[in-house]
Design a binder for these strands. Structure first.
Length: 200
DNA sequence: AGAAAGATCTTCT
DNA sequence: GAAGATCTTTCTA
């Protein structure tokens, strides 16, 4: 029998069944989970504290008009794939596809509380001094963690360099509001924010 | 074909 | 609080 291989995502990494739940449920449950990336400069991680859900029958979603543009292809992969897209010509947003293949659903990660690799993240965002503003926005967290857009379309389930883990960090004060920066689908309360509590 | 808007962030005033 | 940077998609003529 071969030796057991130890990987960074063996214990508490979220698996396919987590992402194949209802998209809004996944968006809420991602609060308090940890996004970990093994970058060129070292490991960076953060606790997710803000998310938004997008589904195909949702006017605000990139998948709304079906699988026909080059950009939205990854949204139609199975739950657990990564969807990254360029917004306003300057920033990338990081999403996790949810539900089964072909559904066109995803959760946008809108904010993290930096955990590991603070020095690296500050280096990646030289103009920013306060820790609070390091990764409290969808474009900001991609810049801070320096996640390259080549992850678009890849799976996060059994990936050597990027994963989402459940470290059982407790969250409090969960808020459910309308989504940010959209003009359609504003009646849907699909944005979730939470306060992350310190480890026990 | 051209224009406008968009799941944003920074730098001004 | 408002504007600018700058790429993809969608809407309009």
């Amino acid at each position: 029998m071969a030796a057991i291989q130890i990987q960074s995502h063996d214990m508490d990494t979220l698996t396919s069944s987590f992402y194949q739940q209802d998209t809004v449920t996944v968006a809420e449950k991602l609060l308090g989970k940890t996004l970990v990336y093994q970058g060129q400069k070292g490991v960076v991680s953060g606790i997710i504290n803000e998310t938004e859900a997008y589904t195909q029958d949702d006017e605000a979603s990139h998948s709304y008009r079906g699988r026909k543009t080059k950009r939205n292809q990854p949204m139609f992969l199975s739950g657990g794939h990564i969807y990254m897209y360029l917004i306003y010509g300057m920033y990338y947003c990081f999403n996790i596809v949810t539900e089964e293949a072909g559904r066109g659903c995803a959760v946008l990660i809108r904010g993290i509380v930096p955990a590991l690799g603070l020095d690296i993240m500050r280096q990646n965002r030289q103009k920013i001094d306060s820790e609070k503003n390091l990764a409290n926005g969808p474009g900001k967290l991609v810049l801070a963690m320096q996640i390259p857009p080549s992850y678009n379309g890849q799976s996060i389930l059994n990936n050597d360099t990027i994963s989402i883990t459940d470290n059982e960090r407790s969250v409090t004060d969960i808020q459910r509001t309308g989504r940010i920066g959209i003009t359609k689908g504003i009646e849907k309360k699909w944005r979730f924010c939470a306060t992350i509590l310190s480890p026990k």
